[in-house]
Amino acid sequence: MTPFKFSKENITIAFYVIYSLVTYLLYEFFPGDAKTPNMGVVCLFMMIPISFIYAAVQVVRHFNTDKSYFKCLLIHTVAWFSIITFLTNLKK
């Protein structure tokens, strides 16, 4: 029996989908007020360093191994443009 093997691209996509879903659920189910931030907002702010560290690890792997992580880096770029576009349009 072979174990499930996921490609590095699928893991990168799953990271953003699952993290966004968890952030949304925390935002909806654990409300905050003006003085204490919502847990979803905290997770959204924590997404910045977590995803940059994840992308930096993949950049280092791209240059230090024989495997190409170009698609993963493209996924990071598209995910961040989507998040920035969504948050910009949400404010309007």
Rank of each mutant, 00 (worst) to 15 (best):
T2W: 07
T2E: 13
P3E: 09
P3N: 10
K5Q: 11
F6T: 14
K8E: 12
K8H: 13
N10I: 01
N10S: 09
N10H: 07
I11L: 15
I11V: 12
I11W: 07
I13F: 06
F15Q: 03
Y16I: 01
Y16H: 13
V17L: 15
I18Q: 02
L21V: 15
L21C: 03
T23L: 00
Y24A: 13
Y24G: 03
L26W: 05
L26D: 01
L26R: 04
L26E: 09
Y27Q: 08
E28Q: 11
E28V: 06
E28N: 06
F29Y: 11
F29Q: 01
F30M: 00
F30A: 00
G32Y: 01
D33K: 00
P37V: 09
N38E: 04
N38I: 02
M39A: 09
G40F: 00
V41S: 03
C43S: 13
L44S: 14
L44D: 04
F45I: 09
M46R: 05
M47Y: 08
M47V: 00
M47N: 12
I48H: 05
I48D: 03
I48M: 06
P49H: 01
P49L: 02
I50M: 14
S51H: 02
I53R: 01
I53Y: 11
I53M: 05
Y54C: 02
A55L: 08
V57A: 11
V57I: 15
V57L: 14
Q58V: 00
V59I: 15
R61W: 08
R61C: 07
H62W: 09
F63R: 14
T65Y: 07
D66G: 12
K67V: 11
K67G: 07
Y69R: 10
F70K: 14
F70S: 10
F70G: 06
C72V: 14
C72E: 15
L73D: 02
L74A: 12
L74Y: 01
L74N: 04
I75A: 02
I75T: 02
H76I: 08
T77E: 03
A79H: 07
A79F: 10
A79N: 09
W80P: 07
F81E: 05
S82T: 14
I83G: 07
I84K: 05
T85F: 15
T88W: 11
N89Q: 05
N89H: 09
L90Q: 10
K91M: 13
K92Y: 10
K92D: 04
